Each structure stands twice: as structure tokens, then as C-alpha cells.
Simulated assay, not measured.
Amino acid sequence: MLRQRLLVALIAIPLLTALVHLGGWPWAVTVSLILLAAAWEYTHLIRRIGFSPSPGWIGLMILGFLGDGMAFLPGSRVAELTLTLAPPMALVWFWWIRRTEHPVADWAFTAAGGLYLGWLGRSFVWLRNLPDPHGRWWVAFVLFTTWAADTGAYLVGRRWGRHRLAPQWSPGKTWEGFFGGCLAGMGVGAVLGFFIELGAGPGALLGLLIGSLGTLGDLSVSVLKRRAGVKDSGNLFPGHGGVLDRLDSLLWSGMLAYLYAHWIQGF
């Protein structure tokens, strides 16, 4: 398992690094494809539970939010239009056109998926669109602190984990692994803090927040997988699971970092 994880990381990290460096539309298209793949996995999880969300409507919401993230004109209202038009139109679709068995629940899962993936995922486009070189370093900060926290939690939990964190949702997670992930996030955050003009202390604090709150994103997807009776959301990445498995922590971390950069740093 660990060997597979390392092999995937050796391929994925240089590729993502190159795309982050390019920025612009290549990065936005990459984020879009990743989120659309996650939306497909999400719909299959919900269908295993017994409901029928629409991947098409989720995809439209995702593209609407990302389109807003790429809108360079001041006063862009793409996100507002997406939130205003997509949910009611999707409800009409389920209730009067598709006439599914559970139209309201199907609509609710569709709207939730679009908001979760699109609204949070948009932060990676926002962060990269910060003035260079800040945009590159902020995205790199989120990616590497989140990966460090995930890796630290995995290694510490595997070696010393004894006390279950949330056995009813994710039996493999332990408190020891949680604290190991927090420490790893703090360490990497302290180092990378210099590159985004945070400094070691604020960088470590943001790394701690990413390491701890990212666990909530992980657990939220674990709840769905538990209800669906599957271990992973997909099998695209050997040793890592599916796309949604890799995004569960990153989505929360990206939005947290953007809010920090926007509210505290003034970008």
C-alpha cells in the first residue's frame, strides 16, 4: 500500500507542480476536470445509498463557480447567477421532467454536491489568480501542507494508532494519527510560510488549521462511503482510492487558505 502511494505521488506531484506554475486557463481546466471526476464519483456513492442525483446539474454548478473564479472583470456575478438559477431549475428537472422516486432528496443531494465541490473547489482558482509569485506559492502551500498532514496522519496512525477517532464513520482513523497529521502540517507550514510572506509562526498556525480542519472534510466523505458500503470513492489512484478521496481534505484546506489570504493578508 505504501509503495503504491509513493509511486502515485512521484507521478502526480511533478505534474501538478508544472500546472500550478502555468496557472491561467491550463490550471483552471485542470481543476475543472478534477472536480467533474469527483462529481461523478459522488453521484455513484449517493446512488448506492438509494437516491439519484444528477451529475449533469452538479457539473453545471461546478463550471459556473469556476467560471466566476476565472472572471477577471470587476463585479463578476457568475457565482450569483449559478446559485440563483441552477438550484430551482434542477428542482423542476427532478419534479416534473425526470419524475424520480425521491425528487426532493435527489435535488438536495445534487445541490449539495454542486455547492460542496464547486464553491470550495473554486478557491484553488482564486488562490492561483493572486498576483505572482504569491498565487503559485499559496497553491503550493495548500497542496504540500495538506499532503504532509495526510501522510503524517497515515504513518503515525499506522505505527502508533490505538484510540479510534470516529469508529462509526472511519474505523481506520485514530487520535494519534490526527495529532501526527497536525504536527506534520505545522512543520511544513512553518517552512513554506517564508515563501508566502507569512513567516514561520503564522505559517505553522495555518498548517495546524489545515491539518486539523482538513480531517473534517475527510470524515464528511467517509460518512458517505460508510453509508454506501464502500471503502473508497473510486480506484483511479492505486493506494489512494478515487478522486473524491484525494479531494476531501484539500477542498476545506483550499478555502481556509483563501479566506486567510483574503481577510488577513489583504489580497
Rank of each mutant, 00 (worst) to 15 (best):
M1P: 12
M1D: 09
R3I: 13
R5E: 04
R5A: 10
R5C: 08
L6Q: 01
L6W: 02
L7C: 06
V8L: 08
V8N: 02
L10G: 10
A12P: 00
P14T: 06
A18L: 14
V20R: 03
G24V: 04
T30N: 04
L33P: 11
L33N: 09
L36N: 00
A38Y: 08
A38D: 08
A38G: 07
E41G: 11
E41R: 14
Y42S: 08
T43V: 15
F51N: 02
G56R: 00
I58T: 15
L60T: 08
I62W: 01
F65C: 10
G67T: 13
G69V: 10
M70D: 05
M70N: 05
A71K: 05
L73V: 14
S76A: 15
S76C: 03
V78I: 15
A79M: 12
E80C: 07
E80S: 15
L85W: 07
M89G: 02
W95V: 15
R98T: 08
V104F: 14
D106W: 04
D106P: 01
A111D: 02
G113V: 05
L115R: 10
Y116P: 00
G118K: 09
G121F: 00
R122N: 07
L127P: 01
D132G: 08
D132S: 13
A140P: 06
F141P: 13
L143E: 01
A148V: 11
A149W: 03
D150I: 10
V156Y: 05
V156F: 01
W160D: 01
W160G: 03
L165E: 02
A166M: 12
W169R: 06
W169Q: 09
S170F: 00
P171G: 01
T174D: 02
T174Y: 03
F178W: 03
F179S: 12
G181L: 07
C182E: 02
G185F: 11
G187F: 00
G189P: 06
F195C: 07
A200T: 05
P202V: 13
A204F: 06
A204I: 08
L206M: 11
L208T: 02
I210Q: 05
G211K: 06
G214L: 09
G214N: 11
L216C: 01
L216K: 03
L216R: 04
L216I: 13
V223Q: 00
K225V: 07
R226H: 09
A228F: 06
S233W: 12
N235E: 11
N235W: 03
L236E: 05
P238M: 04
V243R: 01
L244M: 11
L250C: 06
G254Y: 00
G254E: 14
L256H: 07
L256P: 12
A257I: 06
A261L: 08
H262G: 00
F267I: 04
